[in-house]
């Protein structure tokens, strides 16, 4: 962790009317690191993710992304064209609901190939080969490459979304509750898959979740949010085994043991 952070945010503030969604939030994420943001509903987790990925503009504070050449880019001042290019090359966004991230009327292969075609791939054979390889990688039967995502189960749709996001080998992936809405065994399988892919590809991941178990399994570091503030942060095991802030203590204590 001696190199410069991949994404760095400082002093982020955003209010929705009278409601403070973010209150002076700062964080940094280094290459290859998985950082989880946990907290209850309405604590500002998703808003933070949207601000960091440039989808929302904060009232104050700034977000800086360091590109592969080492240049520091201000995320909110780089212009829409540059941000979109970033979104389909260096970055990825995995939505909670696969319907938001997938094109439901386009076959699985087309979904995986879209990012490739958006960055200029114009060889049908190699796009298809890449799509097949990725379907295999996320444990979807390659024979279903021409099927529409709406014929897939929820877990398969989520895995397809992950394949579609990772096909351009991004460096930084934002995940908004990727396991939300899936049943427990499917969740376990998906977490396992994400963990393997992250390690394989050396991805940096910013993971928003309210599932403490998922955070413990995937994340190196943990940020606990409440009322738009980061109340505690540190190494995942440290935070979960020895919570300092009373809210974190409550959060850890309220996890059900099976």
């Amino acid at each position: 962790m001696t190199e410069a952070p991949l994404l760095e945010a400082s002093g982020l503030s955003l209010r929705f009317g009278a409601v403070p969604a973010l209150d002076d939030v700062s964080l940094a994420i280094w290459p290859g690191e998985v950082v989880a943001i946990v907290g209850e509903s309405g604590s500002g987790k998703t808003t933070l993710l949207r601000v960091l990925s440039g989808l929302l503009r904060p009232d104050a504070g700034q977000v800086t992304y360091r590109d592969p050449e080492g240049a520091a880019l201000p995320v909110h001042d780089m212009g829409e064209a540059a941000l979109r290019r970033l979104m389909r090359t260096d970055w990825g966004f995995v939505h909670q609901n696969p319907r938001d991230g997938l094109r439901m009327g386009v076959s699985a292969g087309g979904n995986v190939g879209e990012r490739l075609m958006a960055v200029g791939a114009r060889h049908y054979g190699s796009i298809r080969a890449e799509a097949l390889a990725w379907l295999e990688r996320v444990e979807i039967d390659p024979a279903r490459i021409d099927d529409l995502p709406r014929t897939f189960s929820g877990g398969m749709q989520q895995r397809l979304q992950i394949a579609r996001t990772l096909v351009t080998r991004p460096r930084l992936v934002f995940m908004d509750e990727p396991t939300g809405g899936l049943d427990v065994s499917v969740q376990a399988r998906l977490l396992d898959l994400i963990r393997a892919l992250v390690a394989d590809l050396g991805l940096a991941v910013l993971l928003v979740t309210h599932d403490i178990a998922a955070a413990r399994l995937l994340a190196h570091r943990l940020l606990v949010m409440r009322h738009g503030q980061v109340v505690e942060q540190g190494l995942t095991d440290r935070v979960l085994d020895d919570p300092q802030h009373e809210y974190t203590q409550l959060l850890v204590a309220s996890v059900l043991a099976a």
């Binding site: 076959s107 292969g109 190939g113 960055v119 049908y124 490459i145």
Partner: peptide, 22 residues
């Protein structure tokens, strides 16, 4: 309009891809 402004035409090729696949 935004797609034209940014020359973001990957989607059109997705349609062509779908045609060949089908």
């Amino acid at each position: 309009k935004r797609m034209h402004a940014l020359a973001d035409y990957g989607l059109m090729h997705v349609k062509l891809y779908e045609d060949i696949a089908r």
